[in-house]
Design a protein around this nucleic acid. Structure first.
Length: 181
DNA sequence: CAAGTGATTAGCT
DNA sequence: GCTAATCACTTGT
């Protein structure tokens, strides 16, 4: 299982190294296929003065879970390389507990869509605000990958500032990767 | 393409 | 204290 030392690095490196790892929560799990890095950049929540920004600035190896647009949760892991950092988990290819995921999502979905996109991922995995601040490994854990997957790069999705940075990473030709807009 | 949804935050008073 | 703006998304038309 990945420990805190793994996350005590730059968010961009962690984002790339999480691809191919297995995300686990209880009896559901899958392979991480899409991530985004955030650190001290215009789109980062590190600038927020409240508890959300503080988690990014002052911790590593913790879950940062927040509600977005009033209805979706997003899962991040905090990182640290001497500055603020977090990695958004955008998509997972389900491997375990698919029936459990089906039961949690709003409507029937093909397996590769169950955890495609950050909001759906949290819903399928049963991750919400109660997990915010958890240490990785408490309830949600990550298993190391075997081998090194191919990695593709793009701008991050859904942001208005910081579009020049190529900090989205994904495994090419993976059907569980969200559609590029 | 537009609506839906509510917590968080900054910027006032 | 209060208010308004913002928001790392998904779904259905």
């Amino acid at each position: 299982m990945l420990d805190e030392a793994f996350f005590r690095r730059d968010a961009v490196a962690v984002a790339q190294d999480l691809l191919g790892c297995v995300l686990l929560h209880g009896d559901v799990g899958g392979i991480i296929v899409e991530t985004e890095a955030y650190r001290d950049d215009p789109a980062s929540h590190a600038v927020l003065r409240g508890p959300r920004g503080r988690l990014m600035r002052e911790t590593y190896g913790r879950l940062y879970v927040y509600l977005i647009y009033g209805m979706h949760y997003c899962l991040n892991f905090t990182t640290d390389a001497g500055g603020p950092g977090a990695v958004l988990i955008r998509a997972v290819a389900p491997t375990h507990g698919l029936d459990r995921m089906q039961a949690r999502v709003l409507r029937p979905l093909p397996p590769h869509e169950l955890a495609r996109g950050p909001g759906r991922l949290c819903r399928a995995f049963g991750i919400g605000r109660e997990h915010n601040g958890d240490r990785v490994g408490d309830r949600v854990s990550v298993l190391p990958r075997q081998g090194r997957p191919a990695i593709a790069t793009s701008p991050r999705i859904g942001i208005t500032k910081g579009r020049d940075l190529l900090w989205r990473f994904y495994i090419p030709d993976e059907p569980s990767v969200s559609r590029f807009r």
